[in-house]
Simulated assay, not measured.
Amino acid sequence: MANIKSQKKRNLTNEKARLRNNAYKSELKTLIRKVNDSIGTSDKDAAESNLRIVSRKLDKAVSKGVLHKNTAANKKSGLAKKVSKI
């Protein structure tokens, strides 16, 4: 444990950010799973609507600093490619 007051504060904020980021990543994984499930059932309308939601959430994750922009771009393009194959 740190002895310096500012580092103690920093540790608290880091922990809050870590929990928030984990929650956001978990939500993203759930949404991506929904897209993949709708692709598996060949439901194009559901897949496209879920893809729109996931794309928006991925962009928001990038703006909040949860994900790197290239990671989000790779995920979006991969999902879009799968949806277009239906």
Rank of each mutant, 00 (worst) to 15 (best):
17 A>M: 12
74 N>V: 11
33 R>F: 05
76 K>P: 09
3 N>V: 02
11 N>S: 13
66 V>W: 03
25 K>R: 15
25 K>V: 06
15 E>C: 03
44 K>A: 11
73 A>G: 10
39 I>E: 11
24 Y>M: 02
83 V>Q: 03
79 L>V: 03
50 N>G: 00
81 K>D: 15
22 N>K: 07
3 N>D: 10
77 S>Y: 08
14 N>H: 13
72 A>S: 12
78 G>T: 08
22 N>C: 01
10 R>F: 12
4 I>R: 10
68 H>L: 06
82 K>Y: 02
15 E>W: 04
82 K>H: 07
72 A>F: 03
48 E>F: 00
29 K>Q: 13
49 S>E: 14
48 E>M: 12
64 K>I: 00
6 S>T: 13
70 N>C: 04
33 R>T: 13
68 H>I: 00
23 A>N: 09
3 N>Q: 05
78 G>A: 09
79 L>Y: 00
11 N>W: 07
76 K>H: 09
73 A>H: 12
37 D>E: 15
68 H>V: 02
43 D>I: 03
34 K>L: 02
55 S>M: 07
52 R>Y: 10
66 V>H: 05
64 K>V: 00
24 Y>F: 06
25 K>L: 14
47 A>R: 01
9 K>L: 15
28 L>K: 01
11 N>Q: 14
45 D>C: 00
81 K>Y: 04
68 H>D: 13
37 D>A: 11
54 V>G: 01
67 L>Q: 04
28 L>W: 02
67 L>M: 10
26 S>E: 12
3 N>E: 11
45 D>P: 01
22 N>I: 02
81 K>L: 12
25 K>Q: 12
29 K>Y: 07
78 G>I: 06
32 I>C: 02
8 K>A: 13
34 K>Y: 03
37 D>W: 02
2 A>Q: 11
75 K>Q: 11
48 E>I: 07
66 V>Q: 03
43 D>K: 04
50 N>R: 04
53 I>N: 06
17 A>K: 13
80 A>G: 14
6 S>G: 09
60 K>F: 01
65 G>P: 07
23 A>K: 08
60 K>M: 02
31 L>H: 10
51 L>C: 07
71 T>V: 13
